[in-house]
Write a protein that binds this DNA or RNA. Structure first.
Length: 385
RNA sequence: CUUUUUCUUCCGGAA
């Protein structure tokens, strides 16, 4: 059954949880009995696929088949529920975990610290981090990376630098994630040269950059409109045999678009297909935005068609962008029409979708229509920004 | 054999 669990894990890692589930059912019919690891694997699979409720159902089923959840089960669900925005349920599970004498381990604490950071409660996270030692746990590389990332993301760069120093002093060796976090942080601060320097530093320390390192730097350079340097780095990445991902291309595409190289950006889509990479919604949304900005509604519509043709449903961002584009071209009626069609596609327009229309109407002395639309927006329960 | 950390479009947060 170890072999079978490995197989299930493989399916889950590829996001094919449904297939994993049916495979399990099939095997159960043939007399195979799942163990705790089997359940843990599937619970994790559902969590990662964004189906937290199905994961919770599996917990029930697991109990019904006589398996008590263990630390790993709880850890998986706690982080999974939080990722899916169900932190109150996670809280409940944590209590259940403690009351059922299942002792939280370092992984549990790392998850909790991470959630606190993601919720913007970095101070609270730091407190828990400091309490770890007295609880008998030594913060590991995960703990440090989580806190470092949390501090960087809320611009507490000095605190982050200090922690990094402490980390080194304690003999905790920075790993590739640590470097990636720091490089990203430098990029966001606009200190691109420092970020590039860190890339070379990590190599000297024997830590080899991976695709995330390059993606981070390429995106950072693109955001600063240093697209040519980003392209050079992209070349370096290829030379070293590090395969680009969809995210690499999305960054480059967005970068080229933002410096007005829309045609060249579009060419990258073809290149992606040649490399076996499948452009995603983000890819199309980037190009769409570029055409909208220059008021080319025809090309904008074309790209949406291409997106649909390749099997992607336009999302809120797509619609928001198109509405923005139509407004820029003064075409308010079609913009409003699209806005109104959104609920039929199962999407509730947010304020972002209304804003360009409202702004445009106001600037064109069509305040009355703007007010009517604004009232309508409030009636739909959309919060103004 | 299973659980925790890092990268892309829109928005938000802060001002």
């Amino acid at each position: 059954s170890v072999t079978f669990n490995v197989l299930l894990h493989g399916f889950c890692k590829q996001g094919r949880v449904e297939e994993a589930t049916s495979l399990l059912e099939e095997m159960s019919g043939n007399g195979f009995s799942p163990n705790r690891v089997t359940f843990n694997t599937l619970i994790n699979g559902f969590c990662k696929a964004g189906e937290a409720s199905k994961a919770a159902e599996l917990l029930e089923k697991m109990g019904a088949e006589g398996f008590e959840p263990d630390v790993i089960t709880y850890n998986t669900l706690i982080s999974g529920l939080c990722r899916n925005g169900k932190s109150q349920e996670a809280r409940r599970l944590l209590d259940e975990m403690v009351s059922s004498d299942c002792v939280p381990d370092l992984v549990t604490y790392n998850s909790l610290i991470n959630v606190m950071c993601k919720e913007g409660k970095v101070e609270e996270a730091r407190e828990l981090f400091n309490e770890l030692t007295s609880k008998g746990y030594e913060p590991d590389i995960y703990t440090h990376n989580i806190i470092l990332h949390g501090l960087c993301r809320c611009d507490k760069v000095d605190a982050a630098a200090e922690l990094f120093g402490e980390m080194l002093a304690k003999g905790c060796v920075p790993d590739i994630v640590t470097y990636n976090v720091l490089i990203d942080s430098f990029c966001r601060e606009g200190r691109l040269n420092r970020a590039m320097q860190l890339l070379r530093e990590m190599e000297n320390k024997g830590c080899h950059p991976d695709f995330i390192t390059y993606n981070t730097l390429i995106d950072g350079l693109c955001k600063k409109e240093r697209v040519q340097e980003a392209e050079e780095l992209f070349g370096e990445m290829n030379d070293r045999g590090i395969m680009p991902t969809v995210i690499t291309y999305n960054s480059l595409i967005d970068g080229r678009c933002n410096v007005g190289r829309i045609e060249e950006a579009t060419e990258l889509i073809d290149e992606m297909f040649l490399k076996g990479l499948v452009p995603d919604k983000v890819t199309y949304n980037c190009i769409l935005k570029a055409f909208c900005k220059v008021g080319n509604i025809q090309k904008a519509t074309d790209i949406i068609q291409m997106m649909i043709h390749n099997g992607w449903d336009p999302d809120v961002v797509t619609y928001g962008t198109l509405i923005y584009g139509l407004c820029r071209s003064g075409r308010y009626e079609p913009a409003i029409k699209i806005l109104r069609s959104m609920p039929m596609k199962g999407m509730l327009p947010e304020a972002v979708a209304y804003n360009p229309i409202l702004r445009g109407l106001c600037m064109r002395q069509r305040t009355r229509e703007a007010m009517a639309l604004y009232t309508e927006m409030l009636e739909q329960g959309v919060a103004p920004t």
